[in-house]
Write a protein that binds this DNA or RNA. Structure first.
Lengths: 408, 408
DNA sequence: TCAATTCGTCCAAGCTCTGGACTAATTAAA
DNA sequence: TTTAATTAGTCCAGAGCTTGGACGAATTGA
């Protein structure tokens, strides 16, 4: 499984150079061909030819001449064409389904969340409902003259990404489900092959594109829901580990003498900072079957208690924050991220939990690095993973536009 | 700092394809051009041309025709030429300096370790001594008709790799030392630019090339010495994190109520499983100033006690193993490696520590993954990092042979 | 001895980038 | 108003690298 070096042909060269130019256009738009030649190092001839190809594919648009007052012939500005190609992001989660259409300019063109208790439904029916959602999204895109180039599905569980299967999704009760096959069977064929990824990873990527500015290229994104997971992003790419199980923050042991966890360990983070553990410690009645989000959910009840200064709730959240900080300290020592982004329930609990998180984090990450990493809170909503999924499609087009070229 | 895509020209294409062919030769040698065309997908023409270029550079050798009994014209086998180009690995550590010359065939051609207490010497003198060692090594290579293409230095501390400086090396007492400049000033110019890296990272790479078979592409290598560090290798490449501090296993908190650590934290792994902590707990007199390795060192004394079944020593090592296993469990949850390799002192202590390590590891890595990762013990000696450094030079030649082409 | 087979080289052709020449469109100066 | 200077973009010949078919070389099996 060592890093393979693949042969490069003329076509490969062309494909990569298209990506170089498209990337530079996206970074600097509107921008002239001459400037592109400058920054890429290509000759003007080459840039013209590459831009022409991108224009043919509908990925790039000519904005007309710009008279900037400088002397010399005015440039014709080029920019990314957001009105032709889009990506579709889909998400299956415990208590909702989500879809999202994102155009090449990273504007959200369609966004739809449906509450649905997926815990007691068969996989086929869940995917069926998701397919319907996807069809609606594709139709909505079509009405805006957008072509959906590809789709990515976010799933809460461990996946066999190559085989397109869900291995296990404990919170859904799934085991070995051919999710991708079920989905693509119900959809019109897309230019790019569909893909699936873990919900935590995609939520993390969502943060990259829609969250706290594009500067956080290496970070850990905590997506605390029923479980506590983390998406690790390094230089803009998801870090998966050898088998795709990296980022299992929830099962880092905090207290070796703590309560037994379903994973077999003792005192896992999830047993202290998981949603159900927090609610229990805060004295909020157990509500396993019904939806946990929403204004009437137990999370809202917890926040209300916190607002009222309820001591039991405050101490439960503090305890959770401390445990999270401890686990994150281990993550920082091992992964050295730039930033830590708290999402999921920790985003809502931040005002009360963060002091404890920061204190524990600072205690556990010593003088080795000059300062503990930045701690931020996600501003993304519940469908962060769907956003990230759609953004991944867009990203794929941007890094390999040749896939959408007319004769390919 | 996002992942940049760089322009590809004909030269780039050629360079990568040279690497493809050289890699395939190294993997399958001896191998015919025809077979190379098969496995790479290149035409026979292209393979011939690439092989010719590699042969001109002295990186590849023709072995003459092989008559394999098959019918048809016999093939002329091609293989990596180990007799022309070599890499130089250098290592500065607390109590020794090491140098190592490795040829392209990954055979060790020269290996030299000098005991030296570098704790109380000025950086200039240490690097001076290292330069002398390097010169000897280059001369030794020359006598075997080998050209040293480049050098990599292993240093125990935090580095500014781009600037070629050591930021801090606590165990050496260094602060902001321009190590690379000092070294290259004293050496003849090499074809490849020199480089430096952390000792733990290079020791981990050493394991990849010389250790437990080439199948371990993703692993965590624990290099327990005075401190406890870990080198993280993913798909054959070192994982550094955002600032190069990844793998600080030694400061993962094991016991929040434990002893205070120099890093400011409490109950860091290093305070329980660091060499000095183990020796202290085992009741072996403190020996800070003198060399800790060697047959008369305290480590040997500890092993002797363990062999005699000394209860205090045994329990100290068990406790260290348990703590190490706990920290590794966190690492497994976060990084999902294939394998864990124990090096440094843990290699010597393995017979007594490993049961505890494995138990703690199994306890902390639950059902998420089917089984805890493989646990192996390094068979490499003290100069693992020097080996890894030399291997890194060789690796660099293999992944970009164009750097050594006549007209480049 | 001849046919079959495989290996490696040769040569023309195709794809892509390069680089200088050229046209186009504007501003500044005469 | 005319002219020179300047910048943008296109055109075209040329160079680098890979492709693909043809061909000679070297061996085995009939």
């Amino acid at each position: 499984m060592r890093n393979e070096i693949t042969p490069v042909r003329h076509g490969t060269m062309r494909a990569r150079n298209l990506a170089v130019v498209l990337g530079e256009i996206s970074r600097r738009q509107p921008v002239s061909r001459a400037r592109l030649a400058d920054v890429t190092g290509f000759t003007k001839t080459t840039v013209s030819s590459l831009v022409a190809a991108l224009k043919d594919a509908g990925l790039v648009r000519e904005d007309g001449p710009v008279r900037d007052g400088e002397r010399g012939r005015p440039a014709t500005a080029v920019s990314v064409n957001g009105d032709r190609v889009a990506g579709l992001g889909l998400e299956v989660n415990v208590d909702y389904l989500a879809a999202c259409v994102l155009d090449l300019g990273r504007r959200i063109r369609h966004r739809h969340i449906v509450a649905a208790d997926n815990r007691c439904r068969e996989p086929e029916r869940v995917i069926g409902a998701l397919t319907a959602l996807a069809e609606t999204a594709i139709a909505a895109a079509g009405e805006q003259d957008l072509t959906v180039a590809g789709a990515v599905v976010a799933l809460p569980g461990t996946l066999d990404r190559a085989g397109g299967r869900v291995r296990t999704a404990p919170n859904l009760g799934w085991r070995d489900v051919a999710a991708e096959e079920l989905l693509t069977a119900g959809l019109p064929p897309l230019a790019l092959p569909s893909d699936q990824d873990n919900e935590a990873n995609l939520a993390a990527l969502g943060e990259l594109w829609f969250g706290d500015g594009p500067d956080l290229g290496s970070y850990v994104h905590v997506s605390g829901e029923i479980g506590v997971g983390a998406g690790i992003v390094v230089d803009g790419r998801v870090f998966r580990g050898a088998h795709g199980f990296a980022g299992e923050l929830g099962h880092v042991v905090i207290d070796p003498d703590g309560p037994l966890c379903a994973c077999g360990g003792r005192g896992c983070l999830e047993q202290i900072a998981g949603q159900e553990a927090i609610l229990r410690a805060a004295g909020i009645p157990d509500v396993t079957a019904t939806s946990t989000a929403g204004p009437d959910g137990p999370l809202a009840a917890l926040v209300a208690l916190l607002r009222d200064g309820d001591e039991r709730a405050l101490s439960a959240v503090r305890r959770a924050g401390e445990a999270l900080g401890q686990a994150l300290a281990a993550a920082v020592n091992l992964l050295d991220p730039d930033t830590i982004v708290l999402g999921g329930i920790f985003s809502a609990l931040a005002p009360w939990a963060n002091p404890a998180v920061e204190a524990a984090l600072a205690r556990g990450t010593g003088i080795v690095r000059s300062a503990p990493p930045r701690l931020t809170v996600s501003r993304l909503g519940g469908d962060a993973a769907a956003l990230g999924a759609a953004a991944l499609v867009v990203e794929r087009v941007m890094t390999d536009p040749a896939l959408l070229l007319p004769t390919a």
